[in-house]
């Protein structure tokens, strides 16, 4: 099992928003939903490798900034073309006021 990795203080991601998180040569998108719960997925859209952190969080979905493809960031499911391939998701948690992901 991989280690929990520190991402940022909880306040650095607004509720219903996303940030980019780079870690050992990989890039991830770390989200908070409207209740403030954190989630983590691969950082690049599966359609054309665009950073999802520049996109828009709408309820449980992330909309890609390039072609408006959509994914459920909680399950990774691709919901709207041209995004067809699901995102990989990773566990995320809040510990002592900080967001951590297991990647």
């Amino acid at each position: 099992m991989s280690e929990w990795v520190d991402v940022c203080a909880i306040g650095e991601i607004e509720e219903e928003d996303v940030i980019r998180f780079d870690h050992v040569g990989r890039t991830f998108a770390v989200y908070r939903d409207e209740d403030g719960t954190p989630f983590c997925t691969d950082g690049l859209c599966t359609h054309e490798q665009v950073h999802l952190a520049d996109g828009l969080v709408l309820d449980d979905e992330i909309e890609c900034p390039k072609h408006n493809g959509r994914f459920n960031y909680k399950t990774g499911a691709a919901l709207r073309t041209p995004a067809c391939v699901a995102l990989t998701t990773y566990p995320a948690r809040i510990a002592e006021g900080r967001i951590q992901v297991q990647v």
Partner: peptide
């Protein structure tokens, strides 16, 4: 829809 995605790429 796919054509327009390419137009944006």
């Amino acid at each position: 829809r796919w054509s327009h995605a390419r137009h944006h790429t």
